[in-house]
Structures are given as structure tokens and as C-alpha cells.
Design a protein around this nucleic acid. Structure first.
Lengths: 208, 208
DNA sequence: TATTGTATTGAGCGATCACTCAATATTGGG
DNA sequence: CCCAATATTGAGTGATCGCTCAATACAATA
């Protein structure tokens, strides 16, 4: 006796759920909205995903996996680690306007939305943010190995700073600032990364 | 015929409302929660504040006024404009742990929470963020006037960058990172401001 | 102190919330 | 072609949502 095949596509459904949660946040997303977005009746949703919270967690996981693998493939294409990190920042400034409005980091949104209301989601969000930061730190370590960075550079610290920059840039996109302002901001951030190169030195000149 | 005096303190009530909205966000804050926080019955709340949305807007206004005047008095105490801006950043790293957990910028939270659900709140939030940025830009202009910055420095651009840094730093506080990590991040940001000083030059040395 | 205008009260409104489950539809195996 | 196993359905659950309003308590005048 074989199981009946599921007539819904789990990946499509999760993708639709992610899109809605990303847009409205956890609390402002209703089951009614999810029913419409997933094209599923409440019973099917609960049979497939157990609860609204669990569906959110699954969508968040999907977001995390997609983000991380996207970053990895961007880095694989880069000429150098630091070049890849700078290019990653600049890539946010080149998004189409409609894609740009979408662009708060889902993890940031998740953290802000549920920080004092849903400990389970917060814990998961924290760990994904840490995973992404580890990814950044690994890239800075590669830069050290490639002698792009001095051997005593603190990869963890640079990674946290880098992640803070990305977060702020994406919030600015979410805010809907003009393309020129976004370009200037991302350029400032990208150059901050490039200025770390070991062959550049900052000095205080002699006074007078 | 005189009016009966209101037995509730409007300032105390707004402060309590702000605290609750700040903690939970607009959507996750219920009237029941507000009744408890303000110690008012639903009828009184609606007589005094019209609607949940309007109460939120009033609390947000209060937050904005407090933030701006706090920044202004910090700057008034500073030895120099750039010094004041750097000190402002460092001040976030010196908060007590319980105050730190509270510390997402309410405007950031407001933007993320209501971006696709409440246009009225979003519009007000945008304008407050712009007002704060104008405050930062004015400080950078003062730095130019005091010859701390070169005359061709772009105050608007520096202000946007500064605001992005503050936003990211406060998100990191909200995330609950360790005191050491927060201190390192804020130090990186504060030094970025100080490095703008006109008497520091970055050069690329001769190769070899 | 009686009157009058206003502030406060809180039960309860219809709508919507997340969610359930008995009934039904659909499938592959025998 | 029928049956057993599973997926889907959607009306309906109790709880809670934001909010209202007739009733009540109160303070200032006359």
C-alpha cells in the first residue's frame, strides 16, 4: 500500500510562506493570508507544517540556506576574498527598485519582530545570524591566508563589523532611500573593506 | 463651569505606552496589554488617544523628541563636533546590560514592523529618521566650520553613514552580543568618525 | 447641597485570531 | 473495480482582537 502523493509542492509553498512572512512579519501574518498565499486550506497547512510558528521556522531555514549558498557562490566567483566581500556589498546597490524594497535581511526582521514575544524564533534567528557571521569570518581568514590582510588581523571582529554594515545597508534599502544615496552608502562600506588591504597604510603626517 | 481634571497623567501614560510598544512592536501589542500598562480602562484609552494607531504615533513622537534632545545635549557637552559624535557612539557601549537589551532604535523597529502593513506609521517614521539624520548632518557641518573636517566633506553623506552605524550598533545590542564584542564594534565605529579628522591622511606607500 | 458637565467604567460588540476534526476526495494495490 | 490508506476539505471551535457606549462617579459651580 503506497502513500498518496502530496498534490502541493512543498518547496513552492515554503517559498510563498517566506515571501509573506518576509513582507508582513510574524505577528501581522494571519492564517487567512497564508491560506491564500500557499493556496491551501487550513487543515492542509496544519497537516503539512504543524503550526504557524513551525511554518515560520521552516521558511526561515529556507531563507538562511538560500542566503548562505548565495554568498558562497558569489565568493567563489571573486578574484580575491576582500574583492568578493566588497563586491557583495556593492551588489545590494544594483538591485532593481522593486527587489530593493524587499530587502531587509529576514533575520534582522525576525529578530526585531519576535525579540520579546517568541523565544523559540529568536533563538533560531540568533544561531542563523551567527552562522552567517562565521561565513564572513571565514572569508576574512582567507584574505589573511592570501596575504590580502595582515597576519594579525582579527577576522571575527572584521566579520561582525561587516555584518553590521550589510544589515544597515539593507535597512536603508527597506527604508526606500534614493538610488544615489544607496550607491554612496554602499560605496563607503565597500571601500572600508578594500582599505583593509595590507598594502595600504594610514599615517599621521608631521605637524606644521 | 470648569472641566473635571483628568485623573491620569498623560506623560506617564505615554511613557508606559512607549515602553510596551518598544518592547513588543505595534502588531504584538494588544489593547489588553496597554490597559494593564497604562492602568486605564479601554474607554478611557479611547477617550484620551482615539485609537491604538494614534496612541502609537504619540508614543513615537515622544520617543523622537526625547532622542533628539538627548543627542543635542550630548553634543553641547562635547569638546568638538567630531568628538561629540564619536562619544555618542561609545555611549551605547557603556549601557547597563538591562538597558542594552532594550536598545533597538524605536524608529528602526517601527519601520521594520509596519513597512508593509501601516502606511501612516511608516510615513511618520521616515520623517523622524530624516529629522535625526539632519541633526547628524548639522553636527558634521559644525565640524567643517571648526576645521575638523576638510571644507569639501559631504556632511549629508557622512550623516547617512553615521546613522547606519548607530542603527547597526543598536541592533547588535538588541541581539544581545557580549559586552566585549559590543565594545569592539562601537570602538571601530567611533574611530571611523575620528579618522575623518582633517589632520589625518591615508596614503599608499611606494611598492617593494 | 443640588446641579451640571465631563471622565471613567467595564460588559460586551462584531470581527478575526490560530487552529481542529468529521466528512469527503483521491490515490495505488489487490 | 473495489478497497484500504492517506490527503484535502472548510465549517466551526473558543479565545482574543480593536473598539463602543450606556451607565456611573466625580468635581466645580451656583
Amino acid at each position: 500500500m503506497m502513500k498518496r502523493a502530496a498534490p502541493y509542492d512543498r518547496d513552492t509553498a515554503l517559498s510563498a510562506a517566506l515571501s509573506l512572512f518576509w513582507s508582513k512579519g510574524f505577528h501581522a501574518t494571519s492564517l487567512k493570508g497564508l491560506e491564500a498565499a500557499l493556496n491551501m486550506k487550513p487543515g492542509s497547512i496544519y497537516a503539512a507544517f504543524d503550526s504557524k510558528e513551525n511554518l515560520y521556522l521552516l521558511a526561515l531555514e529556507r531563507y538562511f540556506e538560500t542566503s548562505r549558498s548565495g554568498f558562497r557562490s558569489q565568493m567563489a566567483k571573486a578574484a580575491s576574498p576582500l574583492g568578493g566581500l566588497a563586491a557583495h556589498i556593492r551588489s545590494y546597490a544594483n538591485l532593481s527598485p522593486d527587489a530593493a524594497a524587499h530587502q531587509v535581511c529576514m533575520l534582522t526582521k525576525s529578530l526585531v519582530d519576535t525579540r520579546n514575544t517568541d523565544p523559540v524564533i529568536v533563538a533560531r534567528t540568533r544561531s542563523y545570524l551567527a552562522e552567517i557571521r562565521k561565513e564572513f569570518a571565514a572569508a576574512f581568514e582567507q584574505a589573511k591566508a592570501a596575504r590580502e590582510l595582515p597576519a594579525d588581523a582579527d577576522a571575527e571582529r572584521l566579520a561582525r563589523r561587516f555584518q553590521a554594515n550589510i544589515t544597515a545597508l539593507r535597512l536603508e534599502l527597506h527604508l526606500g532611500s534614493g538610488a544615489g544615496e544607496i550607491a554612496a552608502l554602499s560605496e563607503d562600506m565597500a571601500r572600508e573593506v578594500e582599505r583593509l588591504r595590507a598594502d595600504l597604510i594610514c599615517t599621521a603626517p608631521d605637524s606644521g
